[in-house]
Structure formats: C-alpha cells, structure tokens
C-alpha cells in the first residue's frame, strides 16, 4: 500500500504504514490511529512507545515452562505455592491466562507454542516437546494434563504426547470434553455429545 502521497508528512506516513502491518488494521484504521496519536499528550505517546520496546527487549521464554516472561524462571515456575508434581500442557501462552482465571489449578504449566499440523508442515520437532520430556526426567512429576484444544489437531497432539509420556510411568490425563456451560443440546455436534455421554458423572 502506498500511503506516502504528496500531502502527507513523512513521519505521519511512516507511522501509518507501521500500523497497517498489524493484524486487522486496514488503511482507514491505520490513519485513524495515527491521527489519534498525533493529538495525544506527548507523555502518553512516549509511554506507549516505551511499552512496545519493553516487551520486545525484556520478554523471553521461561527456560522451564517456555511461557513468555521477563524473569527466568517465570513467576509460575518459581512460586513456592504451586505444586511441581503436576504439569498442564497448553498450546499457547494465552491458554495459561484462561486456565489461571479459573483459580482452580495450582500446578505448573508447559507451553508447546503450537500444535501438530502435518498439512502445514508443523511436526513434533517444531514444538517444545523435547523441553517437556526433559522436565519429566527428574521424577518429581506425577501427572501431565494435556490441555490442547479439543479439535482434530489438538487431539492429534495430545495422542502424540500420550504415546511419548505413558511409557515413563507418569499419569497422563486429558481435559474433559463435553457441553459448554450455557450451551444448547440442539446445536451440539455428535463428537461433543459422544464425549459428554462417555464422561457423564453421578449427581
């Protein structure tokens, strides 16, 4: 896209082009954001710029759980209150946020940074699986919870991990799959319903 037509000052055009690179930002949104920033107090604009730089400079992967962090090991791996005998395996760092919101899980995490996707050429070697297996060597871990997404690729990844971990004598569990709270039976697909029936519980 050429935003740099004559009446636009060079710094303005540059900022617009940078915004345009972000997901979901088209030329109009880029222009709107740019002009919003132009009218913002300088201190706020500086704070935004510094925040962007800080995430790029300070954020690294935790050497234990592979989550994004600014301190290694991260606060979740370091915390004394958490149970090191359980590891919950997730696809992406954002999944940890979702699980933490439940306040019901007190174990450790492991982020795979993706999912097995053979058609895209993403195989087990492209995920943080070696790092997970290394963590299971010490003997402290007694359970691995596979919390990959309940779709074909997530299930394939879970099955793959199960095959690797089960021979180590560690308990491997999978998050239950079934009906969502507030959902509707009528619209539920057969796979979900089958799993919900299999996983039914005594009231």
């Amino acid at each position: 896209m050429n935003l740099n037509f004559p009446p636009l000052a060079e710094p303005v055009a540059r900022l617009m082009e940078e915004f345009h690179k972000l997901p979901g930002i088209g030329p109009k949104s880029a222009a709107r954001l740019t002009y919003f920033l132009l009218r913002m107090p300088e201190s706020q604009a500086k704070a935004l710029a510094e925040a962007i730089l800080a995430v790029k400079e300070k954020i690294i992967l935790c050497s234990i759980c592979q989550n994004l962090t600014d301190a290694d090991p991260c606060s979740l791996c370091h915390g004394e209150t958490r149970d090191p005998s359980i590891i919950c395996v997730v696809e992406e760092p954002l999944d940890i946020l979702a699980l933490e919101r439940t306040r019901g899980y007190k174990g450790h995490y492991h982020v795979l940074h993706g999912v097995i996707s053979p058609m895209d050429g993403i195989g087990p070697d492209d995920l943080k699986i070696k790092e997970l297996l290394a963590r299971l060597q010490g003997g402290t871990v007694q359970e691995v919870i596979l919390a990959t997404n309940p779709n074909l690729e997530g299930e394939a990844t879970a099955m793959y991990l199960q095959r690797l971990i089960a021979p180590l004598g560690i308990r491997v569990t999978r998050l239950a799959r079934g009906l969502p709270v507030g959902g509707d039976l009528e619209y539920t697909d057969e796979v979900t319903l089958t799993r919900a029936l299999e996983g039914r519980q005594e009231l």
């Binding site: 074909l152 690729e153 697909d189």
Partner: peptide, 12 residues
Amino acid sequence: PKSKLGGHLDLL
C-alpha cells in the same frame, strides 16, 4: 466454545 457451528466444522 459455545459456537453452534464449531463442532460441525472441525477438520475432516
């Protein structure tokens, strides 16, 4: 999670 379509449109 509550999508009406989701489960009917998984791969394969």
